[in-house]
Simulated scan of single mutants.
Amino acid sequence: MASVLVTGSAGGLGLNAAAQLARDGHDVVVHARRADRLPAPPEGHSWAGAVVGDLSSLDEVREVAAAAEEHGRFDAVIHNAGLLDVAGMIEVNIVAPFALTALMTRPSRIIALSSGMHRGGSTDLTRMARGNASYSDTKLWVTALIMAFAERWPDTLSHAVDPGWVPTRMGGAGAPDDLEAGHLTQTWLATADDIEPRTGGYWHHRVTQRPHAAALDPGFQRALVAALEERTGLTLPA
């Protein structure tokens, strides 16, 4: 049985992943931006806990991290929370996963949602400071961040997941991909033993793919981590 934190689990893929993990007998801590958005657990099950905070605010990210730490060290953290082309997107999509990782006791596994759209992202990190990054940029950056984690901490299983274009509130009702398949890779990576590669994978429906070349570039990874450290005032453990 694993203990798992799922950010952005008020609905969509995050809720589906959290509910599946709870049904499978794992201890799940859910997260929502506001208390009134916290989801009910699946019938016959319960959450191990819940944390509340707006991940577009670094102060509230600190509060989320502190509340999550009260549950002890997690076996896995799934960075599911994400925004598409709205205010706060940069903070939620890339700054929050970095800050939570810097602030919390490092889990055994770190999983972040990327997107196939990351392949159209830019390596121009000044877009982060200027606030004009695209959704594709943020997903390239979070993919590179996960690869940086894999390089920095070989004993931590760090993976990025493309869930596909699925019919959630973000994806829209007409999205053509499989909603159920969209969350099963995350739950598998959070709990399975038979994962190959063990770390540093970019996954789509439990099959690895090659991400944008910049995500695998150690120089870009270092520049990204430095930009995030400067922006947040936080430093990743060595």
Rank of each mutant, 00 (worst) to 15 (best):
T126F: 06
T126N: 12
M128L: 15
M128V: 10
R130I: 05
A133C: 15
A133M: 08
S134R: 11
D137M: 11
D137I: 07
D137Q: 11
K139S: 04
V142Y: 01
V142W: 00
A144L: 06
I146H: 00
A150T: 06
E151R: 15
E151T: 12
D155I: 07
L157N: 04
H159V: 00
A160H: 01
D162Q: 05
D162M: 01
G164R: 02
W165C: 05
V166S: 00
P167G: 09
P167I: 07
G171Y: 02
A173S: 15
G174A: 14
G174W: 08
A175N: 07
D177G: 07
H183Q: 12
H183K: 04
L184I: 13
L184H: 05
T187I: 09
A190F: 08
T191L: 11
A192T: 10
A192Q: 13
P197I: 09
R198S: 10
T199I: 04
G200C: 13
G200Q: 07
G200D: 08
G200K: 03
G201V: 09
Y202M: 09
H204P: 00
H205L: 03
R210Y: 06
P211C: 13
H212M: 02
A213V: 11
A214I: 08
A214L: 08
A215S: 14
D217K: 07
D217C: 07
P218E: 11
P218R: 12
G219L: 09
